[in-house]
Nucleic acid binder design. Structure first.
Ligand SMILES: [Mn+2]
Ligand SMILES: [Mn+2]
Ligand SMILES: [Mn+2]
Ligand SMILES: [Mn+2]
Lengths: 224, 224
DNA sequence: AACAAAAGTTAGATTAACCTAACATTTATT
DNA sequence: AATAAATGTTAGGTTAATCTAACTTTTGTT
């Protein structure tokens, strides 16, 4: 394995962007324009960068074709994501940032270079498995178990989950969510499933229990 | 007061270097070569940077003359120092980094841009007044109260003092300190000064007496 | 004061990261 | 298949931060 000289913030950001774009494609690849969109740059800038990353064996790329991360490029991306998410946990759990503000700061912190810093931070945080948005935190050796999203209705009794999205985007539904004080990242514990109508008793935060209908729970996406 | 667009890491590092170099001069100024030394760059690089910083009204500078921070430049430098020292406290107190390793990481963390991050961090740390090296932490509005410190060599016989900092920050010195189990806050009683070579007999904690050289005692900062 | 040494600047390059305008290739649609 | 649209690359330029080599100014020393 070739020795990798430290990458710049910029290179790390591109790898992270390529990772998240290619993860959501069947073929695990992405395109120049998509990357430009995601990184707020212009396509020519991306072309240059792709050539550079290809030279460093971080992506496989031929001009006019779609790009893929190499194994080594993917490992780098995952390490950056690991750092990003650990910092998000720190900001949220320790510094009490609200979940919608952690991202911007973590975007900077993720580039701090120190192995020791990250392993100590992880220990300090109690080896968390998910960030405040419910996304999984990769392990030090780069393993990432892609949490599969399920609907709240399918969570087991007694299990804890995190809200990661919704299936219904209509106003009444979103307003109801807001009324219940449920948003992305909300940690929910499923207390009981009522067999009669599929409604659920759940608890959030400081344990206030509420009851929600099956119809509602069918439209909330969570990860366990 | 002119609105200041965010400075680059590099610019912040130069301002910090200029601050610390000029603080220790009678005339509160410093020179191109000194800055180059401190920042591990070459004099021409510094010349360029000084012109740029002068344009931004962060330093007063005329070519071939010595340079001084403006009020605004000093404020920026102090804020960077504030961030640096708060992060050092975090690394030392929360992540249990040893004394001699906090600096390198703080050197990176000090450039993270977020007012909110720093104020929350400060609160989380319990509003510390000194960093792990004993140096004072500037307040949010840029005040920095420097306690009078003397070197251990100048403490009178029979007097008691407290370690508040060091003059030498190199690894061998810091390691020797650790070996002697001397750190910030350590209470030291000066038992005897040997006229012959200026070496000192001191006692700490449970009264174990040890002898230290003048060279060593010249680099330990204390308050009586 | 004269000259040598030290300190500091300018000139001219380089590299990374970006851009716009022009060109090339691939793909989609008559 | 021909053409239009979309996508992607090259050419050529900019800015920040750095360097070496050559030059200039200031300072120190006979
Ligand atoms: Mn980032
Ligand atoms: Mn996240
Ligand atoms: Mn720094
Ligand atoms: Mn310090």
């Amino acid at each position: 394995m070739a020795y990798l000289q430290p990458l710049s913030f910029t290179e790390e950001n591109y790898l992270k962007a390529i990772y998240s774009l290619s993860e959501r494609a069947e073929s695990f690849d992405t395109s120049t324009n998509e990357i430009a969109l995601k990184t707020n740059t212009k396509p020519p800038t991306v072309s240059d960068m792709l050539r550079k990353l290809a030279d460093k064996k971080l992506v496989t790329y031929e001009k006019y074709k779609r790009v893929q991360l190499t194994k080594s490029g993917r490992q780098v991306a995952i390490q950056v994501i690991r750092k990003h998410r650990l910092w998000e946990v720190f900001l949220h759990d320790k510094l009490e940032f609200t979940w919608d503000k952690v991202h911007e700061v973590a975007e900077q912190l993720e580039h701090i270079r120190s192995e020791e810093l990250i392993s100590r931070l992880e220990k300090f945080l109690g080896y968390p498995t998910n960030d405040p948005h419910g996304d999984p935190i990769p392990s030090a050796n780069g393993e990432l178990t892609q949490a599969k999203r399920i609907i709240l209705s399918d969570v087991g009794e007694g299990k804890v989950c995190y809200v990661v999205g919704v299936k219904d985007s209509t106003s009444p539904f979103l307003q109801y969510l807001q009324q219940l004080n449920i948003g992305i990242g909300t940690k929910i514990k499923l207390i009981e499933r009522i067999a009669y109508d599929g409604s659920l008793t759940i608890s959030m935060r400081k344990g206030q229990q509420i009851s929600v209908s099956k119809k509602f729970a069918d439209n909330v996406l969570v990860t366990v």
